[in-house]
Design a protein around this nucleic acid. Structure first.
Ligand code: ZN
Ligand code: ZN
Ligand code: ZN
Ligand code: ZN
Lengths: 165, 165
DNA sequence: CAATTAATGTTATATTATAACATAACATAT
DNA sequence: ATATGTTATGTTATAATATAACATTAATTG
């Protein structure tokens, strides 16, 4: 199968995450610049906090950290930044967790298919055309026209499977 | 494709919903009886309220109705009943809406694939083996082992497509 | 620089869900 | 039948998630 585009793979548990963070921030700066939208200081900081790991991050955890840095932070502060970042495809919401993850490829917008490890909490993101086509076909057979799909899969990642042995 | 099991199809907009309700309640009584679990008066009433339409129902809307009937109702009243009904597979939660729908085939447990009409709000439920297999294969190619899938698809149902013309 | 727009600050509140403990209903075994 | 344990429900309080509404500040543009 050639269509299994992996927008963000599972990383080794011991990897140097700093590189992920730098890469994501660099990509975000570039993408915003290209689009002529503003990655303000606040939005940048929220994106950094979302990218603090490969695990989904809670809005109020972000808020707690923002408050440490600036007392004037409140729920709208973080939700507005998240709204902007989501609109620009830099962050996705994991609906089943009420939490947010950074996107591996914000430069072209897409709908992600998320794999969520029950053990380490890490999230990988796929964008698989076969899956989309099959779902479109199946839904189509019921006369349903798809606008948007939400796919969130829970299970065990390769690294955690190995560690369990 | 022969695997497209439809657990709950989209119904005609003008259909007599009473039959859906009676059928669902009958099935629930029978299933609970078979399993030796108790469909108490409260749980039955909550299930009826969930089945008041084919649209997902909010917990606090259920609570409002319960309160009309019995002043001692509180959030735990409805969430406990929903927990029971979900555990028995009679109700599913639509995570992207924080709302609950009745299941078309509670007698055997399953994971549903939900189609949600953006126009009329109705929900259909599929349980398609092809989709499950494809996702297992794609996830497997990343070394990921699936426990549970969450699939919620937004779009336009056949009836609403027709009405738009 | 004035006018406008975009972003952030601020206060309040809405929505969704759970914790913790008390009481009532039901089952079962003496 | 009654004591005992178990399940279900009642009750109060609070946690967790998210948005509304309006004020202020910063950035853009004519
Ligand atoms: Zn990393
Ligand atoms: Zn893992
Ligand atoms: Zn119906
Ligand atoms: Zn419809």
């Amino acid at each position: 199968m050639s269509t299994n585009r992996v927008l963000m793979p599972f990383k080794e548990h011991g990897h140097s995450h700093k590189k992920c963070l730098i890469s994501a921030m660099t990509m975000a700066e570039k993408t915003c610049c290209t689009r002529g939208v503003k990655l303000t200081k606040l939005r940048r900081r929220v994106l950094e906090l979302v990218w603090s790991s490969h695990e989904p991050v809670k809005a109020y955890d972000i808020l707690d950290k923002l408050r440490d840095e600036h007392s004037g932070s409140a729920p709208p502060t973080v939700y507005r930044a998240l709204d902007f970042l989501r609109a620009e495809g830099m962050v996705h919401k994991i609906e089943s967790l009420n939490a947010y993850v950074g996107c591996g490829e914000p430069e072209h917008s897409h709908i992600g298919q998320f794999l969520i490890c029950r053990d380490c909490g890490a999230v990988a993101e796929m964008d698989d055309a076969d899956v989309r086509e099959l779902l479109a076909e199946k839904a189509g057979s019921l006369g349903f026209h798809i606008d948007r799909e939400l796919i969130e899969i829970k299970g065990l990642c390769a690294a955690c499977s190995t560690e369990h042995r």
